[in-house]
């Protein structure tokens, strides 16, 4: 690590003051470095450095009261991998990611196609459909907690008024239904993001293609299958990548919704990190969990990039 950075640094210095390939190149180089370095610096200090510290801490036993660190190699990872809680949280995270993203995309693409039609009032509708995306997590959580509350919530009230249940149902007190509703809230908040991305792409669809297909007598399904869908695919994949990353690392909605409970029923990996670090005072394992998450995220994004490149190739 150190030698690489040292080499990198001398390389930068050499290029900075080089004379060989002309003034122009040197000026460009200096300008480029100047333009990029504030960003590099801030990212290094406020994103990379804490991440490296987290990585580093994952190999130590950290005493929470004094922060004394003792090296313990891979113990934290071993501890973690043998804990059922970690694996349960892992699968819960997968369920949360798959559940929310799949429905976000089904609903989001559907709504985007709908709002792409020539309908009166569609501009207003477009604006209003995006509202959930603008609702901060804290408001979202308290809204849904209020709506689902067994004592005062409107949802139970309606279920009872329509005679669907005879007594209020405490949706957030059962691990499975709690997770289900956290997922529902995630779908509600982030579907608009998908709508936004897909609509933007739909607006720049090459009209000639569509016209030609219509002249050839293509049905609307064929039109969608062979023209619209391939055009959307790259954006769908990029959006999928973004959504997956964000959903996987999402902390606030899940945490503020039911604080990881009941019985750890909504403890996804980020919530587990918080639980380990602050409630259980196990800083080492918390750092190890975080590192494991990062590795998973990298794997996921690599997979998507492969898909994305393939989709772009198909298009051209």
């Amino acid at each position: 690590m150190t030698t690489t950075t040292r080499r990198l640094w001398s390389f930068i210095k050499a290029r900075w003051s080089q004379n060989g390939s002309g003034r122009m190149a040197r000026n460009d180089y200096r300008l480029a470095i100047m333009m990029i370095s504030p960003a590099i610096l801030l990212v290094l200090v406020f994103a990379m450095l804490p991440m490296l510290q987290g990585l580093y801490a994952s190999f130590f036993q950290v005493e929470s009261a004094t922060l004394k660190m003792t090296f313990n190699g891979l113990d934290n990872y071993v501890w973690l991998l043998t804990k059922p809680l970690f694996w349960q949280s892992f699968w819960r995270s997968i369920l949360w990611v798959v559940g929310t993203t799949v429905f976000q995309f089904v609903l989001g693409i559907g709504i985007a196609l709908l709002l792409h039609q020539e309908l009166k009032g569609r501009n207003i509708a477009r604006g209003m459909v995006l509202f959930p995306y603008l609702i901060p997590a804290i408001v979202l959580s308290l809204t849904w907690r209020f709506i689902l509350d067994p004592t005062m919530g409107i949802f139970n009230r309606m279920l009872m008024d329509f005679g669907l249940v005879s007594r209020p149902v405490a949706f957030l007190s059962k691990p499975h239904t709690a997770l289900l509703f956290v997922i529902a809230a995630g779908i509600w908040k982030y579907t608009p993001f998908v709508v936004m991305m897909i609509l933007a792409r739909l607006q720049v669809i090459p009209l000639e293609l569509e016209e030609a297909a219509k002249l050839d007598g293509a049905s609307s399904w064929q039109l969608f299958r062979y023209i619209t869908w391939p055009w959307l695919l790259p954006v769908v994949i990029v959006t999928l990548l973004l959504r997956t990353i964000w959903t996987f690392r999402q902390f606030d909605i899940v945490y503020l919704f039911s604080f990881g409970g009941p019985l750890f029923g909504t403890t996804t990996l980020p919530v587990l990190v918080r639980y380990l670090a602050f409630d259980a005072q196990q800083i080492g394992p918390a750092a190890a969990t975080a590192t494991a998450m990062l590795v998973m995220l990298l794997l996921m994004s690599w997979g998507y990039f492969v898909l994305y490149n393939r989709a772009e190739e198909n298009l051209s």
Binding site: T2, T5, L8, W9, M48, L49
Partner: peptide, 9 residues
């Protein structure tokens, strides 16, 4: 030497 400093343990 920021880059170096930042990454050393």
């Amino acid at each position: 030497d920021v880059v170096e400093k930042v990454v050393t343990k």
